Amino acid sequence: MVNNDLSSFVNSVVRFHELAKGLKSLKDHDEIIAYGQSHGFQFTKSDWELFYQTDLSLQSNSVRRKILLANPAHWSWAFRQLSTWRAMLMEGADDGNASI
């Protein structure tokens, strides 16, 4: 079962520019979790991992590969972690990884 606060966080990133802007500096899943929690969204690491793994499992092999190989130092890394957030990126947006 999906944690409602986690779903709210994911959707709020899409709806609110200021919240989305904060994703640019995040470099790992623990930072995404802490960021959401710091903005009042109550979800656990287990909630996030289930949500992320479920989303990842629904992607094609090529998309999954790109997600897993995305450069965590690039501003777009956090946006690439979930399909909902990837949809926010402009088509052809650089991912900072020349090999993809």
Rank of each mutant, 00 (worst) to 15 (best):
W77K: 02
I32M: 08
Q42M: 15
M1V: 10
Q37P: 00
S38W: 02
I67N: 02
I33Y: 00
S83F: 07
A70K: 00
V13L: 14
Q42N: 15
E49A: 12
Y52I: 03
R80P: 02
A73W: 13
Q81R: 07
M1L: 11
S60W: 11
L68K: 13
L23K: 01
E91T: 09
Q42P: 12
G22C: 08
G92R: 03
V14G: 04
Q81W: 02
L6E: 00
A73V: 14
A20N: 11
V63L: 08
H39G: 06
L82R: 00
S38P: 00
V14D: 02
L69P: 01
L58S: 12
H17I: 13
V2Y: 09
T54N: 09
F41R: 00
D30Q: 14
P72D: 08
I67F: 06
V10M: 03
G92H: 06
K21F: 11
D47I: 03
S7P: 00
G36L: 00
A98E: 13
R65V: 08
E31S: 10
K66D: 13
S62C: 03
S25P: 00
H29S: 11
W75L: 10
E18P: 04
D28N: 15
E31L: 09
G40I: 09
W48A: 04
P72L: 14
S76G: 11
W75A: 08
K66N: 13
G92K: 03
S12I: 10
N61V: 14
A98T: 10
G22K: 06
V2E: 05
A93D: 09
G96K: 00
Q81F: 02
F51S: 04
A34H: 05
S46T: 15
K21R: 10
M1Q: 05
S57K: 05
K27H: 14
L50Y: 10
V14N: 06
D5C: 05
K66F: 09
R64H: 10
M88N: 03
S62V: 08
S57M: 07
R15S: 06
F51M: 01
H74Q: 07
A87D: 03
L19F: 06
H74F: 12
L56C: 03
A73G: 14
D30S: 15
L6R: 01
Y52K: 02
G36T: 01
N11L: 09
L68P: 03
D95Q: 04
L50W: 06
A78G: 12
D30P: 05
F41N: 00
D28W: 13
N61D: 15
R65L: 13
D95N: 07
G92T: 01
W77F: 15
L19Q: 06
G92E: 01
A98P: 11
W85S: 07
D28V: 12
H74N: 12
N71E: 11
W77L: 07
N61I: 15
E49F: 14
S57V: 01
L69M: 11
T44K: 09
I32D: 02
I67G: 01
D55C: 06
D30E: 15
W77Y: 12
V13I: 14
G92I: 04
H29G: 08
W77C: 04
G40Q: 09
E31P: 01
F43R: 00
V63P: 00
L56R: 03
